[in-house]
């Protein structure tokens, strides 16, 4: 099957999804606006805390802004693509997931299509603008490598968050009511990555930064862009590894998804 064909079909399904969503124009505009306010509040929260001391975790204003902006762009794009995946819970609970399995397309691709939430596009654009501003303000010694990283890092982070959304949704195949566990890692991950990882101590900081890999969303790429050594002593070559981590995360999420679908019980009728 030609890859371009798959993309075209996917685009059509997403298009149908968008047409359904904009049918309720009032609600749609409201939610576009609402998601932009959320994003602004998130970044504002970082700066309320920043304003107390004029620095966070050993980093100055433009550095903190870069991390917060990179986190915002990664989360908001991941959220745009997969953020509605909690709807899977509803699909599994009612048995509607059946109809996805009965079509000749990958069920994960279909999930992506039906969870595409256009109303979050405002937030995604906002995140991107913030990131560009942060890049311009930050003191970066631009090299080819850093330009490539500046482009790849938000993509890798988006893939990382999208994988988390998928993995979180997949839990519904086993425990329908436990959806909120996923929030700890998706929305929790957004909060975690908004701040320099140096702020978190103990086993918790290590687990989230390196174990789950949240450090690779915004913190390490920012260090690499800023040519800043890690105060916690992680070797500098690791700072460049976000795309690899994103690929690993995506593979694990896809694997988990496959196991989950096999476990689907199709109740609800």
């Amino acid at each position: 099957m030609a890859e371009s064909g798959v993309v075209a079909v996917y685009a059509r399904v997403v298009g149908a999804q968008i047409r359904s969503q904009v049918q309720y124009r009032g609600s749609f505009l409201l939610e576009v606006f609402g998601s932009m306010v959320t994003n602004a509040l998130d970044v504002a929260t970082v700066f309320v805390l920043f304003s107390v001391t004029g620095g966070l975790g050993g980093f100055g204003g433009t550095e903190v802004l870069l991390m917060a902006a990179l986190s915002a762009v990664c989360f908001s794009w991941g959220d745009l693509v997969m953020g509605n995946s909690e709807r899977l819970r509803e699909y599994v609970r009612t048995g509607m997931f059946d109809s996805l399995l009965l079509r000749p397309l990958s069920s994960l691709a279909q999930l992506t299509a039906i969870t595409f939430a256009l109303r979050r596009v405002g937030r995604a654009v906002q995140g991107l603008v913030l990131y560009v501003i942060a890049l311009l303000l930050a003191d970066i010694d631009w090299t080819v490598g850093r330009v490539v990283l500046a482009v790849l890092a938000p993509i890798a982070g988006t893939v990382f968050f999208a994988s988390l959304f998928v993995a979180g949704a997949t839990v519904a195949f086993w425990w329908i009511e436990s959806g909120e566990v996923a929030n700890a890692f998706t929305y929790g991950g957004r909060d975690f990555t908004s701040y320099p990882s140096t702020m978190y101590g103990g086993w918790f900081g290590d687990l989230f930064t390196l174990g789950i890999g949240f450090g690779f969303v915004a913190y390490y790429p920012s260090l690499a862009l800023l040519d800043h050594p890690d105060p916690m002593g992680v070797p500098s070559w690791l700072h460049w590894c976000s795309p690899v981590v994103a690929l690993i995360a995506a593979s694990l999420a896809a694997l988990f998804w496959r196991v989950g679908v096999r476990h689907y019980r199709s109740t609800g009728s």
Binding site: L49, E180, A184, G188, D191, Y195, Y200
Partner: peptide
């Protein structure tokens, strides 16, 4: 569980 994760983050920050 989610509250605990957020608790750790906010507390450290």
């Amino acid at each position: 569980f989610t509250n605990v994760v957020f608790g750790f983050m906010r507390c450290y920050i």
